[in-house]
């Protein structure tokens, strides 16, 4: 489900999502650090970019910029 802008809420991982758009988190791994940073169910996050060749995803939660490694980013499912 790469790059589909289906506003009925097709689910995709933040890793594959299109840059510079806002998304709502559907499901995120149960990691303390993710919760502390506000990456929880129903949180609104903005995807900035994905670094190529297995690099991290850069997102914005409220006003803070966060870098998430590929293996976790792939498991953060969003819609929107």
């Amino acid at each position: 489900m790469k790059g589909e802008n289906n506003f009925n809420g097709s689910h995709q991982s933040i890793y594959n999502a299109k840059d510079n758009l806002q998304y709502i988190v559907v499901n995120a791994p149960e990691l303390g650090i993710l919760k502390s940073l506000g990456i929880i169910e129903n949180a609104m996050i903005q995807k900035l970019m994905t670094h190529r060749f297995g690099g991290p995803v850069l997102i914005k939660v409220d006003s803070s910029e966060i870098a998430i490694g590929k293996d976790i980013a792939e498991k953060i499912i969003v819609r929107g």
Partner: peptide, 18 residues
């Protein structure tokens, strides 16, 4: 931390992280 972001993919291939 910016260096960590830029070199995370290389670190991953080495088995660690940025």
């Amino acid at each position: 931390p910016r260096l960590s972001v830029l070199f995370d993919n290389i670190m991953r291939k080495m088995g660690i992280q940025g």
